[in-house]
Write a protein that binds this DNA or RNA. Structure first.
Length: 314
DNA sequence: CACTTGACCTGTCCGC
DNA sequence: TGCGGACAGGTCAAGT
């Protein structure tokens, strides 16, 4: 059920958002259990008042941050960071009518039963199913389903903010790379804010462009034929344009592939993110470059493992 | 102010 | 086989 999974970036979080929206919107929170209070960045009592009992109105995303708009006037901000994982599980018992209605909705054979629905992830060998020893938060929903939050490294967090303050809470993020707002001109202007750094560091800076992480930074730079360590200031106009188009192409391809760190299981029909098999350089140290066959190099740029082709990327 | 590094965590992998 | 250490990489605080 668990395939190789990787850290959530924009395409993975967007996939999680879409899938959660289908099962969470319109449902009411009826229970809330926390095993690691340090994952909550708002007082536990506030969750008791403004989360429990509220209906989930909308599931949104900004950069790598998920948010659940609630009927209580509050919004839950939820960050998966490195190893956060959300698992939605259907209620345990169903009537025959419910099972068939669900199978019809999903286009499955009559009688097929719902199973686990895993979103986001991290490779932990031998740990399957929920709840498990890394399940730190459990939410009970009005339809009998449960939402589990697993996080091996406990970097993720849940925070409640007033919905009116949401724009403010998201204000520091740069443009969404797949939005209309993100034009070539805006990208140039955003890059101009970072002068001395490498292009890799600039891509990872969430105030320059939102949602790019280590995998898609390397992939975009390969497509753009640019060496990750190049200084931002040294890019020609044509190179910046190549990078702009590479980012858009790589991210939209990955969103269509449901990301790489994504993993799901519904009724025995696994639908995993497929970008992992399609990645060009990330995690391919020593393997032949897809363009020129020279072995892919791995170095450290901006403090991160960085993969590139020393012949194709200049 | 611009930029880099370290801390937060705990798992997996690799070499001895 | 066991064990120590490097490594994973999102974000923010602290340091240069």
């Amino acid at each position: 059920m668990y395939a190789t999974t990787h850290m959530p970036e924009l395409p993975e979080v967007e996939t999680v958002r879409r899938d959660l929206a289908r099962v969470l919107q319109g449902r009411r929170v009826t229970g809330f259990l926390v095993r690691k209070p340090n994952l909550l960045k708002s007082p536990r009592a506030l969750f008791g008042r403004k989360f429990v009992g509220a209906t989930i109105v909308k599931v949104g995303r900004r950069a790598k941050l998920l948010y659940l708009e609630l009927s209580s006037g509050y919004t839950l901000l939820l960050h998966l960071k490195m190893t956060g994982q959300l698992v939605w599980a259907r209620k345990a018992r169903f009537t025959r009518h419910e099972i068939n209605a669900d199978a019809r909705r999903r286009g499955l054979p009559r009688g097929e039963r719902g199973g686990l629905y895993v979103v986001g992830g991290h490779p932990i060998s031998g740990v399957l199913g929920v709840p498990n020893r890394f399940t730190y938060i459990t939410v009970r929903l009005s339809d009998g389903a449960k939402l589990y939050f697993n996080d091996v490294r406990q970097f993720g967090y849940w925070r409640l903010v007033r919905s009116l303050a949401l724009p403010e809470a998201l204000a520091h993020f740069g443009p969404e790379p797949l939005s209309r707002e993100f034009t070539l001109d805006l990208f140039r202007a955003q890059l101009a804010r970072r002068r001395r750094t490498s292009i890799k560091a600039a891509l990872l800076d969430q105030t320059v462009v939102a949602g790019i992480g280590n995998i898609y930074a390397d992939e975009s730079l390969f497509v753009a034929k640019l060496k990750p360590s190049r200084r931002v200031t040294k890019l020609t106009r044509a190179e910046t344009q190549q990078l702009y188009h590479a980012i858009r192409r790589v991210l939209s391809t990955a969103v269509k592939a449901r990301g790489t760190s994504f993993n799901s299981y519904v009724d025995g029909l696994g639908r995993s993110g497929t970008y992992w098999e399609r990645r060009l350089v990330y995690g391919r140290k020593g393997e032949p470059c897809p363009r020129c066959k020279r072995p892919i190099q791995k170095t450290v740029v901006a403090g991160r493992g960085t993969h590139f082709c020393s012949r194709c990327q200049l």
